[in-house]
Design a protein around this nucleic acid. Structure first.
Lengths: 243, 243
DNA sequence: ATGTAGCAATTGGTCTGACCACCGTACCAT
DNA sequence: ATGGTACGGTGGTCAGACCAATTGCTACAT
């Protein structure tokens, strides 16, 4: 279309810059901001504009100003802190190995907790998800979104909101890989059967079993993606056990 | 109690008055507000203060200012006024529990990886850190920052940048708790000795031992903070083992 | 040494008055 | 009708000054 035309107001730019700094972690909770006068000098704008930006940020609970003292970054709800990690991670190129390592590190424990805490309703939900996956697989589809949905419902069963957000971020970064893996011959079927095993373990409340199967599931995927025996690195040498 | 003395800032009063007018229906959706100059005259304050109030209201989606035109009451969010804070914000205690659960989930594995991958240089670094901690503890200090530094060097030894970022965020959110824990009698000494044990395991390359000690270390801390035996909940029932 | 009262510097809070950028309108020329 | 233009009003930005609260230092009293 035509030009959307941006009408950027000065104080909005300041708001954006400071928010960015906070999200990049360059400004952490409790840190003191430069004084209004310093900010106006750094940004080459008037103090009024700085103050209007600060008012905006303050009303959104990002900051807290105290007369005679200074302006400080407010204590952030943890939920806010997880999200910005995503952008930082996406920019890194060879992070695929690291992402898988994170999965290998977290997801078995996640399954452990899910087996401990899943309610009957959640188990029923998982069963219906797997039914859907079976459906799609039998039709020759990869069932990729259902695959993700199952993992989502797993992490949801842990009831840990921080864990949920972190896993959401990790899985999001791994969408491509998951897609690629499921393209392989027999992979969708294998994934489905692993999921069934995990669900059985969860239904039985067998935490350690759930964790073990999840670990094996992840090893399958990694072997499938990186080639079993080809890309072995020291980084992956821990896969055989965990703790 | 005494009264905390209301240190109400001028622009906050303006915000309150305008909000009140909106809620009373004296200002309806789409209505145009008086000009900033008129408002400053009516309220007997400067235009700056009026503007800071408007910025606050605007960032909360109550208003919308258009240069050359005027300031208007936003159309949608009349319902939003009624909902105070519907968003599921975790209580401080709940999020603390979740944070510790994340530590319990991640850090043993982290120690496992560190034991696997730490270079001699990193081990030496850790040793010097623990020497510093010993120094501070013997002087009666808590050694809090050194405590954090040790954990940082541990996670650094895993060479996983994503893990580093996530742990950095988690540890940052737990600064207060760590401080509180180390205030207790004998806690700094206990922390130091745990760290030494972990370092020994890492130096020996004994991954499983490093993980086990780390897990015990975390259990110590949680018991110390939440009271051993008092606050047991289902959420914590997994602490005895892990996988 | 200790602590306490008071001063001085620093910081956010408020005010004034000026100018700029933008929008709507009325008016004009075509 | 159409398009340009000038004008008045509005929000946006600026500079500089002063007020008010907090902090930290200093000097004095204990």
């Amino acid at each position: 279309m035509f030009k959307p035309v941006k009408k950027t107001r000065v104080y909005e730019e300041i708001v954006a810059k400071i928010k960015e700094m906070i999200e990049q972690g360059r400004l952490k909770s409790g840190d003191q901001l430069p004084t209004e006068r310093e900010l106006s000098e750094v940004f080459k704008v008037s103090r009024s504009s700085v103050r209007e930006a600060l008012r905006t940020l303050e009303s959104q609970k990002f900051l807290e100003s105290r007369q005679g003292d200074g302006t400080y970054i407010a204590r952030q709800p943890i939920e806010m802190l997880v999200t910005p990690l995503a952008s930082a991670i996406l920019t890194e190129k060879d992070s695929l190995m690291e992402l898988f390592e994170m999965r290998r590190l977290i997801e078995p424990q996640l399954a452990y907790l899910a087996a401990e805490r899943a309610t009957p309703e959640e188990v029923a939900e998982m069963e219906s998800i797997l039914d859907r996956q079976a459906d799609q697989v039998s039709k020759g589809e990869t069932g990729m979104d259902v695959d993700k949905t199952f993992h989502d419902s797993l992490v949801g069963a842990t009831k840990n909101t921080i864990l949920i957000r972190i896993m959401d971020m990790l899985m999001d970064s791994l969408t491509e890989s998951r897609d690629k893996y499921l393209q392989g011959e027999g992979r969708p079927e294998r994934s489905l059967s692993r999921h069934r095993e995990i669900l059985v373990a969860i239904k039985a409340g067998d935490r350690k079993l759930a964790a073990r199967i999840m670990r094996e599931h992840l090893e399958d995927i990694e072997n499938g993606l990186f080639g079993a025996g080809g890309k072995e690195e020291s980084k992956q040498s821990g896969r055989e056990g965990g703790i």
